[in-house]
Design a protein around this nucleic acid. Structure first.
Lengths: 232, 232
DNA sequence: GACTGTTATCGTCATAGTGACGAGAATGGA
DNA sequence: TCCATTCTCGTCACTATGACGATAACAGTC
């Protein structure tokens, strides 16, 4: 049986919340094509490697951490015939949500790597589209899953969790209602018994992520219009 | 730059509702490997073909219809190194939701094709997993999107729509509450003015699908447990 | 130490959505 | 005519929600 030959890559949409805003990890391309342009980190899948393993490997390489924590899931695949001038390349995009990393990012195969606020990037290949899909996935999953905790360190306050929603959605939930919903949704967060110290205002209780896979009831963002964009 | 060589296929999870139950379109394999076993329909992506175009082509081939209607979306990609004994094959799975087709299915590259009730299949490759993922995606999307109409013919009754939910979820919503929610969700269904005739019971009004992309408010299934399976 | 600003946490209240269910409407068949 | 069936509309108690007031518990300043 004969069939066309493809190359397969994984590309990563790595998101984090820094300084109250949603940021994405980008690399400046060090080789053709699109040399010098910003792009999503990624690379070819090895000969004997699973897709998820390739994504984890690339994530570790780009962040410089063996186990950066957070969350990693498959996003979607993109395979338009002309998306890569080198030939027929199908990419499997993964979405990673990480807490703000104080560690440096030492990319091995990129001239530079940097966190950039999510906005109107102009990236190489079809990475603008992939990034947009990843951001929309993240926005949507904050509603129905406890994934906001993936942006937080192991222990966090309800206010820190709220800033995640504010950064990802671009809209701030009411602090009092958010506190009620976050603490009442079973399995979302669990109290540690400790509290913050030395910060202005009343000390806040510290929580860690719970074990629920689904948020019930969900924490919904305001629907701007009746016919919003459909997920996936 | 050198990189490993892959083959890329598309596999289809084609679902429909027949006789009150959820059915999946399967083909009996006519060549090695897994000769004679049931599998999801699919095939190699052509040299100059987009992934979505390949999925549409395969769907048309398997159903024998140029435009079968319904709904088609990308599901996920699967690329474990040993998933295909012939070599390194990455498959991009697509999910199709179709109304019950009276037309025959004339598969070109399969010895036989058939609708089988979704249950405990034992399919070739990793198709059991792909099928399970597709069914879970369908179950989840019935809650938040008007995709149940993709299972229905152009004109349908609320009761027919309700049987879709019952078949996909395996649990029957209350007819009166479902009627209220289906008719009150903006853009879900639109009245045609016509009604059914000649069937037992009071005639039912006929509706067609609306233009909403999202169901607001959603139609939620009963959560069996607190920690249910997470979507995608 | 009292005061002030700040943030966290708890309560209240009107309103909308929900599940459970009753009841009438409109047909076909006995 | 009566009855079984199915569709359609209402009712009601309960829960979740958004909007907002009020109090708690700190750090800093005078």
């Amino acid at each position: 049986m004969s069939y066309p030959v493809f190359a397969v890559t994984v590309d990563l949409v790595v998101l984090t919340v820094r300084e109250g805003g949603l940021h994405v990890l980008l690399v400046r391309r060090g080789c053709e094509p699109y040399l010098g342009q910003w792009a999503l980190p990624g690379g070819f899948v090895h000969a004997d490697e699973d897709l998820a393993a390739a994504a984890r490997r690339e994530l570790a390489e780009e962040t410089g951490l063996a186990e950066p924590g957070g969350h990693l899931e498959q996003l979607a695949s993109y395979g338009a015939p002309a998306r890569d001038p080198r030939g027929r390349v199908v990419t499997v995009a993964y979405l990673a949500l990480l807490p703000d990393l104080p560690a440096p990012m030492a990319g091995t195969d990129a001239a530079a790597a940097a966190w950039q606020p999510v906005g109107r990037q102009s990236l190489a290949f079809d990475h603008d589209r992939i990034l947009a899909d990843g951001v929309e996935r993240a926005r949507s999953k904050l509603e129905y899953t406890p994934l906001a905790t993936a942006f937080c360190p192991p222990e966090f306050t309800i206010a820190a969790l709220r800033t995640v929603y504010e950064a990802v959605w671009g809209e701030a939930p009411d602090p009092r209602n958010f506190h009620r919903k976050a603490t009442s949704a079973p399995g979302f967060v669990e109290p540690t018994g400790r509290s913050t110290e030395g910060e202005p205002g009343r000390p806040a209780k510290l929580y860690r992520r719970g074990d629920a896979a689904l948020l019930n009831p969900p924490i919904l963002r305001r629907r701007l219009d009746v016919d919003a964009a459909a997920p996936t």
